[in-house]
Design a binder for these strands. Structure first.
Length: 418
DNA sequence: TCTGGGGTCCTAGGACCC
DNA sequence: TCTGGGGTCCTAGGACCC
C-alpha cells in the first residue's frame, strides 16, 4: 500500500509576508486578492477576529475590529519564490515531490522508517530554511492525506503532523467529520449528498458505490474509493502539458471607451504570449471576453469570441487576432468591469518550417527571442508592442504592496531579520 | 467608490458522418 | 403504420480546486 504525504504552508501568503517583516508576526494580518478586493489569506489572529475567507475587504474595513488588522496587497512574485524555496528543501529530503499548488506539495513517503519523526524533522527544516510554517498529513491515498493535513491544521495539539494510515483511527474521524471537509466535495455536491441523508464521511464511505456513481459521476466515485483506502490518484512527477493560458483582470475603474478596452486586451494578449513562450508552446486558438460588473446593478452584458489561428507564439500576431475578436465583443453603451484573453490548443513550438505558412516563422521566432531576452535583462515591458500599456489607467488597485524582497535586486533586504 | 485570477475535469447535447 | 445505430468532434456549462 502506498503512503502519501501532503505538506502545506500555514496561511501561506501571510507567512511569506511575515518571513521578511518580523513586525507582522503574531499579528492579525490578511493578504488581499488582486484589486485589493477580498481577503484570500489570514493569520490565525485575523481568523479569530472573524474575517472570513473571500470576504470583501471594503465591507470588513467598516467594522471597528478592522483597525487592529494589518493588510497587504497580494505579491505573487514573492509567494512564487517562497514556494520554490519550500520545494527545494523538500526535494533534498523526500524521494518524490509533486507540487500541487503554490502552497501544497504531495510527497511519496513509501518505505520511510519512523515516519512521525521524519515528518517532524521535515517541518522543522522547512521552517528554518524556507521560513514557512507548515502542516503534514499522511495517508494511504492522496484524498486521505489531504484530510489528515486538514486535521493537523485544526488540532494544534498534534504538533503539525497527522497520520491517518491506521484504519481504526481513520474510522473514528470519519464518524465525526462532515463530508464537506473532503477534497473534491464542494457546496453543490455537499447539498446533494445531504438531501440523500449523507452528512458524515462515514455515511459517504458506507454508501452503495453504484448509487454514488449515479449521483456524482466518476469524480464522486473516485473520492469514495480513495476514502475507502484504495489509491486511484497516483503521484505525478511530470507536470501535465497545460490545456490553456488565461490572462484576465477586473479593472481599477469601469471602462466605457473602446480605446481603453483595446489597450487592456492588447496588454493581456502580450502577457499571455510571454507565458506561452516561457513554456515553449504555441497556441492554435485564442478567446477574448469581457463583461460588465455583476455586483453594482449595472445592466449585465457578457460576450466572448474565439478564433482558430495558425499555431504561433508571436506577440504581434496574437495581438492582431485579439483585436479582431474584440470588435465582435465590444458593444457600446456598457461600462466594462473585467476582460481577458485565453489561449487554447497549446502544443510545443515546432522548430521546422511549415509549408504554406502565412508568415515567416523563423523571423517571428527570432524577434520574439530577442524581445524576451531584453525584457528578462532590463525588466518586463522594456520592449513592448505600442498598443500595450505598462502603467495603465485601468490598472488594479494595489495600495499596500510589500517590497519584492526576494526577486527584485533593488528591493532586497540588506540584512534580513531571520 | 468598493466583491480575484487561473486552472482542471466531466457531462450533455448538437452536428456530422457512415 | 411506426422512426437505425454508433462513433467522433465541438461547445457550453457546471462543479471543483487553490
Amino acid at each position: 500500500m502506498p503512503t502519501f504525504g501532503l505538506i502545506d504552508g500555514n496561511s501561506f501568503y501571510c507567512s511569506a509576508e511575515q518571513a521578511f517583516a518580523p513586525e507582522l508576526r503574531s499579528r492579525p494580518l490578511v493578504v488581499l486578492s488582486n484589486n485589493d478586493g477580498c481577503a484570500i489569506a489570514r493569520t490565525p489572529e485575523a481568523k479569530a477576529l472573524g474575517i472570513k475567507m473571500g470576504e470583501p475587504w471594503h465591507l470588513f474595513r467598516k467594522r471597528p475590529e478592522s483597525r487592529a488588522v494589518e493588510w497587504r496587497s497580494s505579491n505573487y512574485a514573492l509567494y512564487g519564490d517562497m514556494s520554490r524555496r519550500v520545494y527545494d528543501v523538500l526535494t533534498e529530503r523526500v524521494p518524490q515531490v509533486e507540487p500541487y499548488s503554490i502552497d501544497e506539495m504531495f510527497l511519496d513517503l513509501d518505505g520511510i522508517p519512523d515516519l512521525d519523526r521524519f515528518c517532524r524533522d521535515l517541518r522543522r527544516d522547512v521552517r528554518q530554511i524556507a521560513k514557512i510554517p507548515t502542516c503534514v498529513g499522511i495517508g494511504p491515498t492522496k484524498t486521505i492525506a489531504k484530510l489528515a493535513n486538514k486535521i493537523a491544521k485544526k488540532e494544534t495539539a498534534l504538533g503539525g503532523v497527522c497520520d491517518l494510515r491506521d484504519p481504526e483511527l481513520r474510522a473514528r474521524h470519519y464518524e465525526r467529520l462532515p463530508i464537506a471537509e473532503v477534497w473534491g466535495i464542494g457546496g453543490q455536491v455537499g447539498a446533494k449528498l445531504a438531501a440523500a441523508g449523507i452528512t458524515t464521511i462515514a455515511d459517504f464511505v458506507r454508501a452503495d458505490p453504484r448509487a454514488v456513481r449515479d449521483m456524482l459521476t466518476v469524480t464522486g466515485a473516485r473520492v469514495q474509493t480513495e476514502l475507502r483506502g484504495a489509491s486511484c490518484l497516483p503521484l505525478s512527477l511530470m507536470a501535465p502539458t497545460r490545456k490553456g493560458i488565461a490572462v484576465s483582470r477586473s479593472f481599477g475603474h469601469m471602462i466605457d471607451r473602446p480605446a481603453e478596452l483595446r489597450e487592456a486586451i492588447c496588454t493581456f494578449a502580450a502577457r499571455a504570449a510571454e507565458k506561452l513562450r516561457a513554456e515553449g508552446l504555441e497556441a492554435g486558438q485564442i478567446t477574448v471576453f469581457t463583461h460588465t460588473n455583476p455586483h453594482n446593478g449595472d445592466p449585465w452584458y457578457s460576450a466572448q469570441r474565439q478564433g482558430k489561428i495558425e499555431p504561433t507564439a508571436d506577440t504581434g500576431l496574437l495581438i492582431g487576432e485579439a483585436i479582431r475578436l474584440l470588435r465582435a465583443v465590444w458593444h457600446p453603451g456598457y461600462r466594462y468591469f473585467k476582460a481577458g484573453v485565453m489561449l487554447q490548443d497549446l502544443a510545443p513550438a515546432r522548430r521546422q518550417a511549415v509549408l504554406f505558412a502565412s508568415f515567416d516563422r523563423d523571423q517571428s521566432a527570432a524577434a520574439m527571442k530577442a524581445m524576451d531576452a531584453i525584457n528578462a535583462r532590463f525588466g518586463r515591458g522594456t520592449l513592448r508592442i505600442a498598443s500595450t500599456a505598462t502603467s495603465p489607467s485601468w490598472g488594479a488597485r494595489r495600495q499596500n504592496l510589500s517590497p519584492r524582497y526576494t526577486t527584485q535586486a533593488g528591493e532586497m533586504l540588506v540584512a534580513n531579520s531571520f
